[in-house]
Amino acid sequence: MAAVEALSRWLHATRLSWAMAGGYPWLWPACETLHFIGMALLVGIVGLIDLRMLGFLRSLPLKPLDRLLPWGILGFVINTVTGLLFFTGDPFQYIHNLVFWLKMAFILLAGLNVGAFYLTGLHRRVTSVGAEEDVPLSAKLVAAASLFLWIGVMYWGRMLPFLGEAF
């Protein structure tokens, strides 16, 4: 935690932090807007693949959905960059905030979930699943966990100002 404090103090002294925290008043709202556009991209595309694996939209074959993944990753990158900018703008409102760490933990778990999906070879088995076919139960569990975790990330993000007094 001391390292986090030190990093926060260093970040807070940067010109970028000043710019985010009101130096350029339009910058924070602009980043918020991008953060929501990134969210729609990420949750839309990951959510669709999850819902398909769970058995909704069964007329969709799974393989061609992979072509949408770069757009979901783009959403994740947009939100990582804007998220880091929020953190730089006002690190101290986040680091003492349990809700912030819950959000980070959920993002980490969602990442581990995706990692497990690819590293265990489950993704390769699922790709061959065509229209009207079901994925194995293990893939359904990964999909349910993914949906739960990403909705959880949105929940903790939205709760930052209310349960943890950060915006």
Binding site: F36, M39, V43, I45, P61, R67, L68, G157
Partner: peptide, 29 residues
Amino acid sequence: SLGLAFLVGMNVVLALRLLGLAPRIPISA
């Protein structure tokens, strides 16, 4: 926010497909 993510997210999927970015997805599905 949740409603936004699913409403806009699925609209984006549909738009990307119509624009030809994932051409093997059957549009009818």
